[in-house]
């Protein structure tokens, strides 16, 4: 065999190993969620969809999904707005305290999330706010909005300032520049930031643990069930959560080509 072929096969094997390492645990949970036995063991004797039926009928599970969804959706919208304007200040405009602002924005990302969650919980207590899933939104934002800002800032860095100047030169007001030039050009970044915000909030555990109070988000419930009172619904709910993420990513990937096709048709 030619030596370069050996190298290539080796590379493929290495790639497959990495993928297996990443995805096998997920696949195992997938099998567990359709197995009749209470605990996962191979080979699976009998397949069933009963856990999914139970999960979807269960009021607890639908509550979990609903709370997680609300938190993630609200965090996503606010992060996109804050991230958009934050990114303009971060990357587009020159102002006096820009460097300081850039550092301060980055700081929460590097904080250990559990410390951040604890700090916020203590702060909520001090102010006299009872933690619920509403307060979790604030906690998520402290960590996620900076990430959204960074993602949009990357896009804003490659933005030619002359585009805004040209728009103004041709008669645009500040608001028109924002609507006609800045926002459409940063839109890919804003969408990416929204996607990340949703996924990071949807899967977040440490911040939610400290700040949701009596309410439970999906990751919290999974953890609670693992610690005490394991239920065969655990892998099922886990799979439902993964499925939601996959659907969202799929939509996000399918969106740009669809938008492109739509705009091309309309301009012809």
């Amino acid at each position: 065999m030619h030596p370069s072929n050996v190298g290539r096969i080796g590379l493929y094997l290495y790639g497959i190993l990495i993928l297996a390492f990443l995805y096998l645990p997920l696949v195992a949970i997938g099998f567990a969620s359709v197995s009749t036995s209470r605990y996962l063991s191979f080979p699976i004797r009998q397949y069933t969809t009963q856990w999914y039926a139970q999960a979807l009928e269960s009021g607890t599970v639908s509550d979990l999904l609903w709370i997680s969804l609300q938190v993630a959706a609200i965090v996503t919208v606010i992060s996109m707005v804050l991230g958009f304007f934050g990114a303009l200040a971060f990357a587009r405009y020159q102002w006096r305290y820009r460097r300081l602002y850039q550092k301060l924005i980055l700081l929460p990302i590097f904080f250990p999330q559990s410390v951040l969650g604890l700090a916020l919980l203590m702060w909520f207590n001090a102010v006299g706010i009872t933690p619920t899933w509403h307060t979790a939104i604030i906690a998520h934002l402290v960590w996620i909005a900076p990430i959204a800002t960074l993602i949009i800032a990357i896009r804003a860095y490659s933005f030619d300032p002359a585009l805004e100047e040209a728009a103004r030169d041709m008669g645009c007001s500040t608001w028109q520049i924002l609507r006609e030039v800045t926002l459409p050009l940063l839109m890919p970044g804003v969408v990416a930031a929204g996607l990340f915000s949703f996924l990071l909030s949807w899967g977040n555990f440490p911040l939610s643990l400290f700040t949701t109070g009596a309410d439970l988000t999906l990751p919290e419930w999974l953890y609670a069930k693992m610690v005490s009172g394991y239920s065969p619904l655990v892998p099922t709910v886990g799979m439902l959560s993964v499925a939601a993420s996959i659907v969202l990513v799929a939509i996000a990937l399918a969106l740009p080509p669809l938008i492109n096709r739509f705009t091309r048709n309309s301009s012809d």
């Binding site: 002359a162 100047e165 040209a166 459409p184 050009l185």
Partner: peptide, 9 residues
Amino acid sequence: FQSLALFPH
């Protein structure tokens, strides 16, 4: 403009 500043979108 020197960069022409055409709107890429």
